[in-house]
Design a protein around this nucleic acid. Structure first.
Length: 738
RNA sequence: GGACCCGUAGCGCAGUGGUAGCGCGUUCGGUUCACAUCCGAAAGGUCAGAGGUUCGAUCCCUCUCGGGUCCACCA
């Protein structure tokens, strides 16, 4: 077949990909059968994309994994790259709810079971595309082994882990102040909170004998103390006393406590303490045994304890309370320019309401110890190395991990509460006090304490329509995968999605592969999920397998636009990688993301660069056309040429070994174009270099180039097969030059 | 407040203890002979600034300035 003058990727890519897949080259067994050249195993886990996502520029960086797996495959390793998808609990539910909102609906329009089914369907409808897109980029993963984080065996693993941890007393339930998003209806982990600087009024209000400064007058109804610094002379005489405060809904009494954390220089040096709605106050409450008086509900509205303010949203309530304080002469002054930072939901960007709710926690102290050791001793290496320090810092600061989420899309926590029977505990908390929301047979949402509800409804009816269950700390529970008996209700909280994806290395390998492929070799991912994901995978792996999950971690920061600005829909600078593939070919895009990029850095993606790299594909194509037009008769040795070629092989290999993919790509690019084409081929034209030499050079370069630009090199390889009847195998299966 | 990163050609970025590189762009010249998605040539940089280590620093160290990221705290 005559080669076109210009390389046209779209003519080759799909067919080549099909042949690769058909050849079985993506499977682990492919390398195993070649015993003679067996160098061992090489395994990469693909970070599972969110099941709801379609491909974005960040995913295109999986090219890094593909380069490594192709290179190792050519080196004779039994390689496998294991793909999967993450149900991505909160993320996915958020995306789904946004879709609902477009139709003028919300999650509250559906019962739990229907909502779950709908999201499942939504995920199913949206998840097919991304693998097809990965294939467009040439990714050589073993798709037949894809794992979804809601697969049965994953659920089993996740439940077993929880049960084991519970048995070993690593799990506890606690009423804890969490960052609660009233919009999304769930608590968020510390890591998921975004802090933002805001300017808000700081109100100076009369408070019994004091004047104190607060930005949150509306939480006044939940105050259970007033605090001053223990050595503050101004207020010393009040410490320990009870004061009477003239409030908007009547007088109330609170105790004056002394606490070191109060800054005497802030405001007036007096702080109102609201343990139920402020993290610091909560801590103070623990220290001083204060009552936790919740005045804002999970719906973000003030509750029945707030008198005439009941039912108002926080922002409205603040305004009204401030106005009323003013009217009542209780407002001393307002500082309108007070700057402070507030915690926002990382998804919906609304202000979070610190709320005390029962949550499940993992004690991390003992779990993180071996992780710190393993990282310190370089049992896991980070590329670039600075992330070692970063993860160690994070681990030191890491505190107990809240693993429960109040959303339906996820893996339900395997905890059960026995209902009906009176518990034989001395504890005041009875199972009858469990608060439930359920839909009765008339489709009406009923809420209340289960003990009360059972007077009017059967347990079966509650069980069938159960929406939400909130069991206070201290209520007896049983941990079990399935219902321990007829009269049990299951916890409605689901696991934080990182609880399941943290066990990714343990659910992707087959049982017999743990002997031969564990720890896996390398994992490549975005550096911003280092604490969320990488650290948790190490924790789970060391806990359950006494072994690190991978040896090397390769990180990049993000794919940006040409100007180095993070891509986002709102900025309108999002580039769809598939469009670039359509236009310039997969090789061009891959090379763009690799060439001259240092590990850990941001990766600017500009169409100009892609175009330049498209030209490179064409250059390779045309060099091959030239080489195949020669007679191939001469026999000179051309030692100098061979020496230089060996130097290139050595340099590319060395750079790959050190995860310097950017340099490897740059080297092979420059040497091919500016040495092999510009010098060697030109010499051949004038008869100073043999045809045999440049043919050998072409073959070698095609191999060196293949991991980076697999399509064009494979396309040329096919032409060479016709030309010489020389290589029998496809390029993907040929041997890396030495 | 703490940590980390970056500052190299017009723009975007590599890189190295010993005459400074790539992509895109610019200027000039070149098309029957692999490729105009090309070739040849050229212009363009006191490698942010100051100090130190060194025979020698763009590279290592300290400080300053400028840009960014992450974490913590904020009644």
């Amino acid at each position: 077949m005559a080669m076109d003058k210009v390389y046209q990727p779209e003519k080759f890519e799909k067919e080549i990909y099909r042949k690769w897949e058909e050849s079985g080259a993506f499977k682990a067994e492919f390398g195993e059968k070649d015993q003679k050249d067996k160098r061992g195993n090489f395994t990469i886990l693909m970070p599972p994309p969110n099941a709801n996502a379609s491909l974005h520029a960040g995913h295109a960086m999986y090219t890094v994994d593909d380069v490594l797996i192709r290179w190792k495959r050519m080196q004779g390793y039994s390689t496998v790259w294991l793909p999967g998808m993450d149900h991505a609990g909160f993320e996915t539910q958020f995306v789904y709810e946004k879709n609902l909102a477009k139709q003028g609906k919300s999650r509250l329009d559906f019962d739990r079971q229907t909502l779950y089914q709908n999201i499942f369907q939504f995920v199913k409808d949206n998840s097919g595309m991304i693998y097809e897109q990965f294939k467009r980029l040439g990714f050589s993963a073993d798709w037949s082994r894809s794992v979804f984080t809601l697969d049965d065996h994953v659920l089993k693993q996740v439940w077993e882990t929880f049960i084991r941890m519970e048995k070993e007393r690593l799990i506890y339930k606690d009423s804890y102040i969490v960052n609660f998003c009233t919009r999304c209806g769930t608590s968020l982990a510390e890591l998921e909170v975004v802090h933002e600087e805001r300017v808000d009024p700081l109100y100076y209000i009369k408070y019994g004998p004091f004047i104190l400064a607060t930005v949150r007058p509306e939480t006044k109804f939940g105050d259970t103390a007033v605090a001053v610094h223990p050595r503050d002379k101004r207020y010393k005489k009040y410490i320990g006393q009870e004061i009477t405060v003239e409030g908007l809904i009547g007088k109330f009494k609170v105790k004056v406590i002394a606490d070191e954390t109060v800054d005497p220089r802030f405001g007036t040096g007096v702080v109102k303490v609201t343990p139920a709605h402020d993290p610091n106050d909560f801590q103070m409450g623990l220290r001083h045994g204060l009552e936790i008086k919740q005045v804002i509900g999970p719906d973000g509205k003030l509750n029945e304890k707030c008198g005439i303010y009941q039912g108002l949203r926080v922002a409205e309530a603040r305004k009204k309370v401030a106005d009323d304080l003013q009217a009542a002469g209780l407002m001393v002054k307002i500082d309108e320019n007070y700057k402070h930072s507030v915690g926002l939901c990382y998804k919906c960007k609304r202000v979070l309401e610190p709320t005390v709710i029962p949550n499940w926690f993992i004690k991390v102290e003992s779990l993180k110890k071996p992780v710190v050791e393993a990282v310190r001793e370089n049992k896991i290496k980070f590329y670039p190395t600075r992330f070692k320090k970063q993860i160690l810092t994070w681990l030191t600061m890491m505190h107990d991990w809240p693993i429960s989420r109040q959303i339906c899309w996820g893996i339900r926590i395997p905890v059960w509460y026995q209902i009906g029977k009176k518990q034989k505990t001395k504890n005041k908390k009875q199972n009858g006090d469990i608060e439930v929301k359920f839909i009765d047979k008339n489709k009406k949402l009923i809420r209340g304490k289960i003990g009360e509800l059972l007077k009017d409804y059967s347990l079966v009816e509650v069980k069938n329509g159960l929406q939400e269950l909130r069991a206070a700390v201290g209520i007896k529970y049983t941990v079990s995968v399935s219902a321990p008996g007829e009269d049990y209700l299951q916890e409605t909280d689901t696991f934080d999605t990182w609880f399941s994806s943290g066990q990714w290395p343990l659910v992707t390998l087959k049982q017999n592969e743990f002997k031969t492929r564990f720890p896996t070799d390398v994992i490549g991912t975005l550096s911003d999920i280092l604490p969320f994901w990488i650290s948790r995978m190490i924790i789970f792996s060391l806990y359950l397998k006494k072994e690190v999950p991978f040896r090397d971690v390769y990180l990049w920061s993000m794919v940006t636009d040409a100007k180095g600005v993070k891509m986002s829909k709102s900025k309108g600078n999002v580039i769809n990688p598939i469009e670039l593939v359509d236009k310039y070919g997969a090789d061009a895009l891959r090379m763009t993301l690799l060439y001259g990029v240092a590990p850990g850095s941001a990766i600017p993606l500009s169409e100009d660069k892609v175009r330049g790299m498209r030209n490179f594909s064409n250059k390779i194509w045309n060099a091959a056309r030239y080489v195949m037009s020669r007679e191939q008769r001469s026999e000179s040795r051309d030692q100098e040429f061979l020496d230089k070629l060996n130097a290139v092989i050595g340099s590319v290999t060395k750079n790959l070994e050190n995860y310097r993919l950017g340099l490897a790509a740059e080297t092979v690019y420059n040497e091919f174009w500016h040495w092999f084409c510009d010098e060697a081929i030109e010499k051949n034209k004038t008869g100073k270099l043999s045809d045999k030499a440049i043919f050998h050079g072409l073959i070698t370069f095609l191999k060196l180039l293949h991991p980076f630009v697999p399509f064009v090199t494979e396309a040329i390889w096919e032409e060479i097969k016709d030309f010489r009847k020389y290589p029998k195998q496809m390029l993907i299966a040929s041997k890396w030059p030495k």
